[in-house]
Simulated assay, not measured.
Amino acid sequence: MTEPRHILLVDDEAIAIMALEHGLMDEGFRVTTAFNGQEALGLWRGDRFDALVTDLRMPVMAGDELIRNVRSDKPGLPVVVVSGYATGEISEGLKVNFPAPIAIMPKPVRVEEVSGALKRMLSWDVGA
């Protein structure tokens, strides 16, 4: 049996992070959570992750700065941005600054949407 894909989930909203964490675990992912980019970066340096799911606006370190940092270590890392600020202009800017694989989703988001994007980017066999 293959090991579950390890997701680094970052959001400063406790309710949002708990809902996504439990939903992604139910979908078969292993999930580690952080409440800001700086905390996430510390976790990143101490473990191995297959993908990043992050909010944009957070205290201490914003999501775009976190993406820049982790992508400097692992350029092809799949990223899902889940944000209430993921408007058209911001989404386009993210796509320009951070090449694929990246998915940008406005809050509120359904776990199935995030899970589906992760599975596509990780080339996960959904039937597995």
Rank of each mutant, 00 (worst) to 15 (best):
P4F: 05
M105T: 08
P101G: 06
P78A: 04
L43Q: 12
I104V: 15
G116Y: 05
S83N: 10
P108K: 09
T33V: 15
D47E: 15
R45K: 13
R45W: 00
L56M: 13
N97Q: 12
A62V: 06
I17Q: 12
T54I: 10
F49K: 07
Q38P: 00
D26Q: 14
V126G: 01
G84C: 08
T33C: 15
T87F: 07
A40L: 11
A62F: 03
G84E: 05
K74M: 09
D12M: 08
P4T: 07
E39R: 12
L66H: 05
S115R: 09
G116W: 05
H22C: 00
E21I: 01
P101R: 04
G76P: 00
S72V: 04
R110Y: 01
E39I: 14
Q38C: 01
L8E: 06
S72T: 13
M58K: 04
D55A: 13
H6G: 01
A51T: 03
M25T: 13
L77S: 04
V114P: 05
E92I: 00
A128L: 14
V96S: 06
K74D: 08
P4Q: 11
A34W: 02
L8S: 08
L20R: 06
R71H: 10
D11Q: 10
S91P: 01
I90N: 02
L20K: 05
F35L: 06
F98V: 03
D12L: 07
R5Y: 14
